[in-house]
Design a protein around this nucleic acid. Sequence first.
DNA 1: TATTGTTATACTCTATAACTATA
DNA 2: TATAGTTATAGAGTATAACAATA
Lengths: 150, 150
Amino acid sequence: MQEQGAGAALVGLAVLIQRRYAEICAEHDLTPAQAHLLCMLMDQPRGLTELSRLLGLARPGLSGLVDRTERRGLVRRDNPAHDRRAVTLSTTPQGKKTVDALYADVSTRLPDLLDHLSPAERRNFETIAADIAAAAGLPEAFGGSCPRRC
Amino acid sequence: MQEQGAGAALVGLAVLIQRRYAEICAEHDLTPAQAHLLCMLMDQPRGLTELSRLLGLARPGLSGLVDRTERRGLVRRDNPAHDRRAVTLSTTPQGKKTVDALYADVSTRLPDLLDHLSPAERRNFETIAADIAAAAGLPEAFGGSCPRRC
DNA sequence: TATTGTTATACTCTATAACTATA
DNA sequence: TATAGTTATAGAGTATAACAATA
């Protein structure tokens, strides 16, 4: 027993993380969806097809998200020369500044959720969370890849 | 090091949980928001003000969510005799059937995300997740309270 | 013909402000 | 006056289907 509650506890955990994450995003004047998009572009430009896969969004939804984020001056569409259908998305200087600040803030403050754990439990939990993210193939900005530990 | 990635790993973890949870909800023809609402009513009726707090929603948003869920025949509004302003929400028989099936499915299938962990790591992780949910004061349906362990 | 992306449409979710009814 | 809910309005997010341009 405790088996029974594991699924519910995972949902609760996700709810807590999302709420805190949304608060931090709002302080940077970002929605979580826009923050996710910017995080994927933190280290390199990416094509819309790749972003669609990384963000788990259908194409039309991504188009709209990019429109709104572009309107705020945070990302830029470019057409690569080798395929005139394609679109490459990158951060503008303002977008880069914004996402760097957001990422630093999330890194600093989100783990406060784990404050009541003992140091050992906490490190254990963080390690396993990173393992799960990496095992699921999430990109580095979501804790996957994990170049420092693998 | 690894410090740095902890926040990102938590976000990635939440994203993974949400995606899987949304898939399971969809199989039961529920949105995640409607599923959350039903889960809060799984064991007892509740007033709208309490639901507003539990779900982290402003009143007008909750009103709309209740409208849509009511239209699907899953919940019912009642006016308690002692305060004619108030509204008490409960599941309909169909809503109860739906949420019981959903909850069982979530309990069974959501922890698949932890399949690649060793049994010890997995139990450890589940225990800590439940601790975090409980420490945050989440209701039982989200892994809080945790009557079996506390 | 297959692929990339956008547009059209619709619905859900959520917030703020204004309103109604009751306490 | 304060509280419980609703209505009005607006914008974000996301899905499906139909479309355009390019490969």
